[in-house]
């Protein structure tokens, strides 16, 4: 069963990573969900799909009061990102969902009303959470055409959605990247195939290189921390993307 791991804490400001579910059926891709807690409010990043909702809800409830959830951040529109939306709204009907304006009329197919969605313009925006200012960082075409990452300047954590994702073998249960060279092999095929635009990739690498990042937390695979963050950015900048093979 999934568990919530506290990856950052400073007083009432916390980041929880809900990762690794050994009981999940193998045909469903493994996902990481992240919860940013600040004071009395919490924001859930990429809550995942319908089938894993019980596991995510239970893991979240073990570490944080779920009634404090003020919003959901959906990096993009994929089913493994946000198809559980209706279930979170079933629990808390007044939840807000932050997502690219591009998906404003698509995501309601998963659930919610007009008032549920707070759309993010292409250049990004500030998302306020109990006095904390989080930044929605543009990551368009990586891989979705309307795509955002979330940066917490206080915790120096970048939630990077599918960028940095690695499809790890089932026996790799480390929460953090321990050996970058070994780990990145599991990320290479994914990034080559899923990241469709070289220009978008270079833009993103430049943009995030200017941020002060201690941890980069992707939606699949292990968390990059310390020097591995810049290692990843350099590796990604050099990678040929948008190719079927090679």
């Amino acid at each position: 069963m999934k568990q919530a791991h506290c990856i950052y804490q400073d007083d009432t400001h916390r980041w929880l990573a809900i990762a690794r579910d050994p009981t999940k059926p193998g045909y469903i891709i493994d996902t990481n969900e992240y919860v940013v807690v600040h004071g009395e409010e919490a924001l859930l990043c990429d809550p995942g799909g319908i089938e894993i909702f019980p596991a995510v809800f239970s893991a979240l409830s073990a570490e944080c009061d779920p009634t404090r959830l003020a919003g959901i951040f959906a990096s993009h529109q994929d089913p493994d990102i946000i198809s559980s939306l209706a279930l979170w709204l079933e629990f808390k009907p007044d939840l807000k969902c932050y997502t690219s304006w591009l998906w404003q009329s698509f995501l309601p197919h998963f659930g919610g009303q007009d008032s549920t969605f707070i759309t993010i313009p292409d250049p990004g925006m500030t998302i306020r959470l109990g006095g904390l200012e989080l930044q929605a960082i543009p990551a368009h075409y990586l891989h979705s055409s309307g795509n955002f990452h979330l940066y917490d300047p206080k915790a120096k954590i970048l939630f990077s959605g599918d960028v940095g994702a690695a499809l790890l073998p089932s026996d790799h249960n480390d929460l953090y990247v321990e050996d970058f060279s070994r780990h990145i092999r599991h990320a290479e095929g994914f990034h080559k195939r899923w990241m469709g635009s070289d220009r978008a990739k270079r833009d993103w690498c430049e943009r995030v290189s200017r941020l002060d990042i201690d941890m980069m937390v992707p939606q699949h695979g292990a968390i990059y921390r310390g020097a591995d963050v810049q290692r990843f950015i350099n590796w990604f900048a050099a990678l040929e993307v948008g190719v079927l093979r090679g």
Partner: peptide
């Protein structure tokens, strides 16, 4: 379906989780 999945989530989390009775 929604109620059943939510019920499964509540079962895993326990009835003591705030907000579950209202939901």
């Amino acid at each position: 379906r929604n109620s059943a999945i939510l019920a499964a989530a509540i079962r895993l989390s326990g009835d003591g989780v705030p907000g579950v009775k209202d939901a």
